[in-house]
C-alpha cells in the first residue's frame, strides 16, 4: 500500500488532519536541504511535499520563485532531487514524500523512467503544477505501473462537473488550491474556502488537502477543522530564508504548525 494512503488511514483513526510542509529541494543550500527532510519529520510533519526547482515556476509567488532560483544556482536537478529522497529514506525518514514540480522537468527526464526512479527512491506521490487532467495520460499510465500517486489540483474556479473528474483522477489526496492566485502567504484565509472544501467533498471521497496562502499556525488550525491535510509552503520557506539558523527556524515553525493541526 502506498504510504500516503496508509498515513491518511491512520490519521482518520486519530481524527486529526495531516500537516504537510513544503520544502524546496536545494534551498537554502544542498546540505541544509538534505538535513531538513529529517528535521521536518522529527518536528511533527505527517507528510512532506518536496519541490523540484524549475526555471519558470509560473504558479509560484515571489518567495518560492526566489528559493527555486537559489536551488538552481546551487546546482539542483531532478536527478539530485531523487537522490535526496533516497538519502532521506536511508536516514530514517518514513513519512510519505510527494514531489512537486512542473511538467517539463519530468518530460525531459522521461516520463516512464521518472515514475520508476521516483518509486525506487522512496517517493510516494507527484504533484505537477501545470498538468491538468486532460494532459496527464502519459504520466498516469507510467505511475500506475509503479504505484506512484499522481495528485491533482482543484481550484476555486473548478465547477462541480470538473471537480468530479479531478476527484476521480487524483490518487492519495486531492490538492485544493485555496485561492485564485499564485503561492505565497496571505494575511487571512480566502473567503469561501470552507464552502469550496464542501463542494469538493461532494465530488470525491478522497482526502482533501488545502494549500496556497496559509501563513501561520492559527490559519493552519482553522483549515484543519474542515480539511484532511494542511499544506504550508511560502511561510515556511520565508522562515528558512530568515537570518539565523535555517534548521532551527524550520524546526520551530513546523513544531508550532504541528501543534495547531492536532
Amino acid at each position: 500500500m502506498n504510504r500516503i494512503d496508509e498515513t491518511f488511514r491512520a490519521l482518520r483513526q486519530e481524527k486529526r488532519a495531516a500537516l504537510m510542509p513544503f520544502l524546496p529541494l536545494g534551498y537554502p543550500n544542498i546540505q541544509t536541504s538534505r538535513e531538513m527532510i529529517r528535521v521536518a519529520q522529527d518536528a511533527g510533519a505527517d507528510m512532506l511535499e518536496l519541490g523540484i526547482p524549475f526555471s519558470d515556476p509560473l504558479a509560484d509567488g515571489p518567495v518560492i520563485q526566489h528559493a527555486t532560483q537559489v536551488a538552481l544556482e546551487n546546482g539542483m536537478t531532478l536527478k539530485r532531487c531523487l537522490e535526496m529522497a533516497q538519502d532521506a529514506r536511508a536516514n530514517g525518514v518514513t513519512i510519505p514524500l510527494t514531489l512537486m514540480g512542473y511538467y517539463n522537468s519530468i518530460l525531459k527526464y522521461d516520463v516512464k523512467k521518472f515514475a520508476r526512479d521516483a518509486v525506487k527512491a522512496g517517493v510516494d506521490g507527484v504533484i505537477v503544477a501545470d498538468l491538468p487532467i486532460e494532459e496527464a495520460g502519459d504520466l498516469q499510465d507510467a505511475a500506475r505501473e509503479h504505484d506512484l500517486h499522481i495528485v491533482f489540483l482543484a481550484a476555486p474556479t473548478s465547477r462541480a462537473e470538473r471537480l468530479k473528474k479531478i476527484g476521480a483522477a487524483t490518487r492519495g489526496f486531492l490538492y485544493l488550491v485555496s485561492l485564485t492566485g499564485v503561492t505565497g502567504a496571505r494575511a487571512g484565509l480566502p473567503d469561501g474556502l470552507e464552502e469550496f472544501a464542501q463542494r469538493a467533498r461532494k465530488a470525491t471521497d478522497k482526502p482533501l488537502c488545502v494549500g496556497f496562502g496559509i501563513a501561520d499556525a492559527e490559519n493552519a488550525r482553522r483549515v484543519a477543522q474542515f480539511a484532511d491535510g494542511v499544506i504550508v509552503g511560502s511561510a515556511l520557506v520565508a522562515k528558512i530564508g530568515d537570518s539565523g539558523n535555517a534548521i532551527d527556524n524550520a524546526r520551530a515553525f513546523i513544531g508550532e504548525l504541528a501543534n495547531a493541526v492536532v
Binding site: L58, A59, Y103, A129, D130, L131, P132, E134, E135, F152, L153, A154, A155, P156, T157, S158, R159, R162, I166, V177, T180, G181
Partner: peptide, 12 residues
C-alpha cells in the same frame, strides 16, 4: 500544442 496550465486557468 495542448493546454499545460495550472488548474485555476482551465475554466478560463
Amino acid at each position: 500544442g495542448g493546454q499545460y496550465v495550472p488548474e485555476t486557468l482551465m475554466p478560463a
